[in-house]
Amino acid sequence: EKVLKRMREIKNELLQAQNPSELYLSSKTELQGLIGQLDEVSLEKNPCIREARRRAVIEVQTLITYIDL
């Protein structure tokens, strides 16, 4: 939940920025750090946690791809 919240904050900052190119590098670095945090999530045998992590990774990767474009 914390990762998704921060990812959404970054997305809003990028969309509202007057000059978003200044934010791209720092935002991309922070998003890659969020992916690292998601990699540390213990998936164990809980399919709900596994699915939530998968969705979060996809959302963060989508935003990274947007920045790259």
Rank of each mutant, 00 (worst) to 15 (best):
V3I: 15
V3Q: 07
M7G: 02
R8M: 10
R8Q: 09
E9D: 03
K11I: 04
K11V: 04
K11H: 14
N12M: 11
N12W: 04
E13A: 11
E13Y: 15
E13Q: 12
E13I: 11
E13P: 01
L15C: 05
Q16E: 13
Q16S: 11
Q16K: 15
Q16L: 11
Q18H: 14
N19D: 14
N19Y: 04
N19F: 04
P20H: 04
S21I: 00
S21D: 11
E22M: 07
Y24I: 05
Y24H: 08
L25E: 15
S26V: 05
S26Y: 07
S27F: 11
S27E: 00
K28R: 09
T29P: 00
E30C: 06
E30A: 02
L31A: 02
L31E: 03
Q32C: 02
L34K: 00
L34N: 00
L34T: 08
G36T: 14
Q37N: 02
Q37G: 07
Q37E: 14
Q37C: 08
Q37K: 07
L38M: 06
L38P: 03
D39T: 12
E40V: 08
V41S: 12
V41D: 14
S42P: 14
S42L: 09
S42V: 09
S42T: 07
L43W: 13
E44G: 08
E44V: 07
E44P: 09
K45M: 15
N46C: 08
N46L: 06
P47T: 07
P47I: 09
C48D: 14
C48N: 10
I49L: 13
R50H: 06
R50A: 12
A52G: 05
R53M: 11
R53G: 12
R54F: 01
R54G: 06
R55I: 06
R55W: 01
R55H: 06
A56P: 01
V57Q: 11
V57M: 07
I58W: 05
I58V: 13
E59R: 03
E59V: 00
E59H: 02
E59I: 00
E59S: 06
V60P: 03
Q61E: 12
T62L: 05
T62E: 15
L63H: 01
L63S: 00
I64Y: 01
I64D: 10
I64E: 07
T65P: 02
T65N: 12
T65Y: 05
Y66R: 07
Y66K: 12
Y66C: 05
I67N: 03
I67P: 01
L69E: 15
